[in-house]
């Protein structure tokens, strides 16, 4: 009798490994999901509103109506991800029961718990979580996240925070890799990171899970920049369906992510796309509007 194991670290993390070098796009209905799949997205994130509209609407942002996820799951063959509020065990269980392929425990939604994140290792469905430094990344891995994404500042179309977070995480990973093992426990204390996760990073020479970039990608050049800085792939939220020509932007961002160092090709890819989403200068955001500060 053969044994068949579901929900193992290997199948949960492995699913994210298959997404590498790809683009995951936010969509709000079946039509957008088909546009994303036709453009070559590796997955879609099914939402009620894209982050820039969540900002504009204000109020409490929650898990989307299951009808939207069902509609999107019925429309495409690529994996479908969905967002649950930070610490909202029941929203996450509902999404798992629906059969979504990945759950994003996301700071884009209003947190349900201001102290604790989900114990993600208890779920069969894998999770992706946001991070802006290695302490946060390692805590999420410790809780059972199978994939990370640097947070950036969602819904702004401004890449500056995404760059800051990816550079920071990667610099901190390099520091751990080159550090003496004697120094690791104190570093764990400073970062607020689980010691065993840091030890794994030191031995493997890299994070134990895939790390995508998110929060501000608006152009093909932005996506290529994140790949240049060492992202495994990119999430694009508002950047596609808030641009003037979503089909063109979606295709161009996919192509730029694959060929991120082919600059002559990037010239062609970037030409004649129309107007990108309108951006927001980060210093104009008030403290309570900064989504990146949600998560602990």
């Amino acid at each position: 009798m053969t044994i068949n194991l579901t929900g193992t670290d290997r199948v949960k993390r492995g699913m994210a490994e298959m997404q590498k070098g790809g683009v995951i796009m936010d969509v709000i209905n079946a039509e957008q999901a088909r546009i994303a799949q036709d453009a070559g997205a590796v997955a879609v994130m099914a939402l009620e509103r894209v982050p820039s509209d969540i900002r504009a609407a204000g109020g409490v942002a929650r898990m989307a109506d299951p009808y939207i996820m069902e509609e999107v799951m019925g429309a495409v063959t690529i994996p479908v991800m969905a967002k649950a509020r930070i610490g909202h065990i029941t929203e996450a269980r509902i999404l798992e029961a629906m059969g979504v392929d990945y759950i994003d425990e996301s700071e884009v939604l209003t947190p349900a718990d201001e102290e604790y994140h989900l114990r993600k290792s208890e779920f069969t469905v894998p999770f992706v979580c946001g991070c802006k430094d290695l302490g946060e990344a390692a805590r999420r891995i410790g809780e059972g996240a199978s994939m990370l994404r640097t947070k950036g500042e969602p819904g702004t179309g401004n890449i500056v925070e995404a760059v800051r977070h990816l550079r920071k995480v990667n610099a901190q990973v390099r520091k751990i890799v080159h550090m003496s093992e004697d120094e690791l426990m104190t570093e764990a204390k400073i970062l607020g990171a689980p010691y065993d996760v840091l030890l794994q990073i030191k031995h493997a020479g890299k994070l134990p899970v895939v790390n995508f970039a998110a929060g501000g990608v608006a152009t093909p050049a932005d996506a290529a920049l994140m790949m240049e800085l060492g992202a495994d792939g990119v999430f694009v939220g508002s950047g596609i369906f808030k641009s003037e020509n979503p089909e063109k932007f979606a295709k161009a961002i996919v192509e730029a992510t694959t060929h991120f160092r082919d600059y002559k090709l990037l010239v062609e890819i970037s030409k004649d796309l129309g107007i990108p989403m309108k951006g927001i200068e980060i210093s104009h955001l008030s403290a309570e509007d900064r989504m990146q500060d949600r998560g602990w």
Binding site: T2, I3, N4, L5, T6, G7, T8, R10, V11, K12, G14, M15, P79, E96, G99, V100, D101, Y102, T124, V125, P126
Partner: peptide, 10 residues
């Protein structure tokens, strides 16, 4: 099936 049905076996 979907991702929740992904598995390992010898």
């Amino acid at each position: 099936g979907r991702q929740v049905d992904s598995f390992e076996t010898d």
